[in-house]
Simulated assay, not measured.
Amino acid sequence: MRAFTQLLLLADGRFPSGGHAHSSGLEAAVARGRVRDLGGLRAFLRGRLRTGGLVAAAFAAAACARPEAIEELDEELDARTPSPALRLAARRQGRSLCRAAQVVWPGEHVTRAARARVCQPIALGVAAGAAGLTPDEAALLAAYHAISGPASAAVRLLGLDPYHVHALLAELGDECDEVAREAATHARGPAADLPAASAPLLDVSAEDHAAWEVRLFAS
Rank of each mutant, 00 (worst) to 15 (best):
H186P: 00
I122Y: 06
A187T: 09
P84V: 14
V104C: 04
R188K: 09
A29M: 12
R36N: 12
D203K: 00
G159I: 04
A196I: 01
M1P: 05
G132D: 08
D74S: 05
R181M: 08
Q102L: 15
G52E: 05
L133T: 09
V55D: 05
E108V: 12
G25Y: 03
A131N: 05
V118E: 00
S23T: 12
A184V: 07
D193F: 03
A143N: 06
S205Y: 07
V118C: 02
A170K: 07
A138H: 03
G173D: 13
E207L: 13
E108Y: 02
A57G: 07
R115P: 00
A138S: 04
E68P: 04
H109V: 07
P200L: 12
V118L: 04
P106C: 14
E178N: 01
A90D: 11
Q120V: 09
R14L: 13
P67W: 03
L26Q: 04
R181P: 01
A116C: 06
P135K: 04
V179M: 03
A89R: 08
L7G: 00
L202I: 14
L45E: 07
L133Q: 06
H186E: 02
G94E: 07
L88M: 10
D208S: 01
A146C: 11
F15D: 05
A184P: 04
L77A: 02
H166P: 00
L77W: 12
T185P: 00
R112W: 06
R115L: 14
R2Q: 13
L97W: 08
I122D: 00
G19M: 07
L140K: 00
P135F: 09
Y144H: 11
P190Y: 11
V126S: 01
E27F: 11
H209T: 11
L45S: 07
A62T: 06
Y144N: 06
P67C: 07
V30H: 02
V35W: 05
L49F: 09
R46E: 15
E71A: 15
A196F: 02
E178C: 01
H164V: 10
E178S: 14
A29R: 09
L26T: 10
E207Q: 15
A139C: 10
H22T: 10
V118Q: 03
A139F: 08
P67S: 08
R181K: 12
L45V: 13
A127H: 01
V35I: 13
W105L: 08
D161Y: 11
G53E: 06
V204D: 09
R66M: 10
L172H: 07
P190C: 12
F44Y: 15
R14P: 00
L158H: 05
G94L: 07
L86W: 00
L133H: 03
G40D: 09
A57P: 05
A211M: 12
C176M: 14
P135C: 08
A11W: 08
R36K: 15
A143I: 05
P82R: 09
A116F: 07
H145K: 11
G13D: 11
G33R: 10
A123N: 02
G47N: 13
V118Y: 08
A85P: 01
S198M: 11
R188A: 14
A142M: 03
A170N: 02
T5A: 15
E213V: 15
G33H: 10
A183R: 01
D37Y: 08
A183Y: 08
H109F: 12
A85I: 10
E27Y: 07
A29F: 14
